[in-house]
Computed example of a mutant assay.
Amino acid sequence: MITIETKYLGDLRTENVHLQSGAKIITDAPCDNRGKGQSFSPTDLLATALGNCIMTIMGIKAMDNGIDIVGTRLEITKIMASDPRRVAEVVIEFFFPKDKTYTDQEKRMVESVAGTSPVPLSLHPELRQTIKFNW
């Protein structure tokens, strides 16, 4: 079953439709690679997918254990390499809500699943995944 339908719009831009929900994502090549940089680039989406997949699996672990991490935010930094042009590293920094108190056990439980979700496990081992937690 098809998951996503993509149409090339020209000028290094694509429109992607998630068929189950109808949600759309536009991609644009980055300015440093002949694009306009007016939307997420494909490599931005890779970095975003990594951070969001980790957040989702942490959310599942938290939900299953009665830990409230609603309001947690991420800062995602994508670091490119050249020759060949590729994503060399993604740095994901988690900022948990300061108005909530977490035990050391809760912190360890949530952090323990960070690298176990599908996207981190699907990426090439040479892509460095740096994860930082701020509680």
Rank of each mutant, 00 (worst) to 15 (best):
M1N: 07
T3L: 14
T3F: 08
Y8E: 03
Y8A: 11
Y8V: 09
Y8L: 09
L9K: 08
L9R: 03
R13S: 05
R13D: 06
E15Y: 03
N16W: 08
N16C: 07
N16Q: 12
L19N: 14
Q20V: 10
Q20G: 10
S21L: 12
S21C: 13
S21Y: 10
A23M: 14
A23C: 09
K24Y: 14
I25P: 01
I25S: 03
I25Q: 15
I26E: 13
I26F: 13
P30Q: 05
P30N: 06
P30I: 01
P30V: 05
C31F: 08
D32L: 09
G35W: 06
G35Y: 09
K36R: 13
K36E: 15
G37M: 06
G37V: 02
G37L: 04
F40A: 09
P42R: 12
T43W: 06
L46W: 01
T48L: 11
T48H: 01
A49K: 00
A49C: 04
L50H: 04
G51S: 05
N52R: 05
C53T: 04
C53D: 04
I54D: 01
M55K: 06
T56H: 11
I57T: 05
M58G: 05
K61H: 10
A62G: 09
A62S: 11
D64F: 10
N65G: 10
G66Y: 11
G66S: 11
D68T: 08
G71C: 04
L74G: 01
E75T: 14
E75N: 13
E75F: 07
T77K: 11
M80E: 13
A81I: 01
S82P: 03
D83L: 12
D83Y: 09
R86L: 10
A88T: 04
A88S: 11
A88K: 12
V90D: 00
V91A: 00
I92E: 02
F94T: 02
F95T: 11
F96Y: 15
F96H: 12
F96I: 02
P97M: 09
K98E: 15
D99A: 02
T101N: 14
Y102E: 08
D104V: 07
Q105E: 15
Q105R: 14
E106A: 10
K107P: 00
M109T: 13
M109L: 15
V110Y: 13
V110H: 10
E111W: 02
E111K: 14
V113S: 04
G115V: 07
G115Y: 14
T116C: 06
S117C: 13
P120S: 04
P120V: 05
P120Y: 00
L121Q: 14
L123N: 01
L123H: 01
P125I: 02
P125R: 07
Q129F: 00
K132G: 00
K132H: 08
W135F: 15
